[in-house]
Each structure stands twice: as structure tokens, then as C-alpha cells.
Simulated assay, not measured.
Amino acid sequence: MIRLGLLILATLAGLVVVLWQLGDGAAPDRVPAAAPTASAPATPQPPEPAAPLASEAPSGIVPAARQTPEQAPRFPGPPLEPSPEFAAGTPAPDLPPGAAGATLYVTADRVNMRSGPGTGNPVVTGLDGGTAVEALGPPDAEWVQIRTPSGQEGFVSGQFLSTQAP
């Protein structure tokens, strides 16, 4: 055990000697102090300004703009078109004349507007009593397709709609 410790100590000492000989012998953070002169008091000298940076990159460096290729979409696809359900307010062609556009009013305190006819469809939003809506289908059906003043479309049970304002 003692021999192993001595071997490690000798190796470390050899490394220190080699590094001392290869280096300049002074620690990098120590700067030799100038000897003060006895005849004149020491006045602090302003530091020299650093050399200005070169405006051009050194010849071996490639600018980043030339390294990165411009990104282009690989598959742009066809131009987008609006969905048929959001057409410019035109009623569906299979509706009877005069059915679309009738103003109906919600008669209950709060009614669920659903995405399709029937309670099995998800709720789109809730409508408060007295809300005026536009009928997009026959207003006397069991489930009436409507459009709210904000433009949302859905279905409400016909028993909660009336042509009479509350």
C-alpha cells in the first residue's frame, strides 16, 4: 500500500514539474507588480482602448446566412376553400321556400343548442330566454336548425321556440 501511495505521489510531482517547465512558470491570474519609484508618486494610468473589431469575418469562417438553406414548403397543397356549412348565409337548397329566415324566440329560461337534432348530440352553447334566433329549417319541426345572433348554428328542440316575442 505504501508503495502505491509513493508511486501516485511521484507521478503527480512529475506532472507538476512537466507543466511548470512547459508553462511560463507564473500563475496566469498573478501579474507582477511594478516597483514603485521613490521620487514620484504613482498616478493611475487609464487603460489602453481595445482594438476595434473587424467588420468582416475572418476568411476561414462562413457566415450563418450562407450555412442555413432557405426553408421552403415541400408539399404546399391546394388552396383552401371555405367549408360548405359556412357559406355566405345561403339556405340549404332542400328547404321549403319561406322556411329559412323566420325569427324565433327562446321561451325557456335556458336552452341547450346542440350540434345535431336529438339529445344524444353534444351541446354547442346555451341560449337564454328571450334570445331571438333565425330558423334555418322548418320552424314547426321537432328539432329546429337555428342560427344565433353571433353566427353559431345548431339545433334546439321546437318545444322551446316560439314565433311570439316574450
Rank of each mutant, 00 (worst) to 15 (best):
R3G: 05
L7A: 15
A10D: 02
A13W: 05
A13K: 04
A13L: 15
G14R: 05
G14S: 15
L19C: 08
W20R: 14
P28C: 09
P32C: 00
S39M: 10
P41G: 07
P41L: 14
P44K: 07
Q45S: 13
Q45C: 03
P46T: 05
E48A: 15
P52M: 03
L53S: 14
L53P: 14
S55A: 10
S55P: 06
E56H: 12
A57V: 08
I61R: 13
P63N: 06
R66V: 11
Q67F: 01
P69I: 09
Q71N: 08
F75Q: 08
P76R: 13
E81C: 05
S83A: 15
E85T: 14
P91S: 07
D94W: 11
L95P: 01
A100I: 09
A100P: 02
A102Y: 06
V106L: 02
T107G: 01
A108V: 06
R110C: 05
V111P: 02
N112V: 09
R114A: 04
G116E: 07
N121E: 04
P122Q: 04
L127P: 01
L127I: 06
G129I: 06
G129E: 02
G130T: 05
V133H: 02
A135N: 02
W143E: 00
T148C: 05
G151K: 01
Q152F: 05
F155D: 00
V156A: 00
S157M: 06
T163D: 05
A165N: 14
A165G: 07
P166T: 10
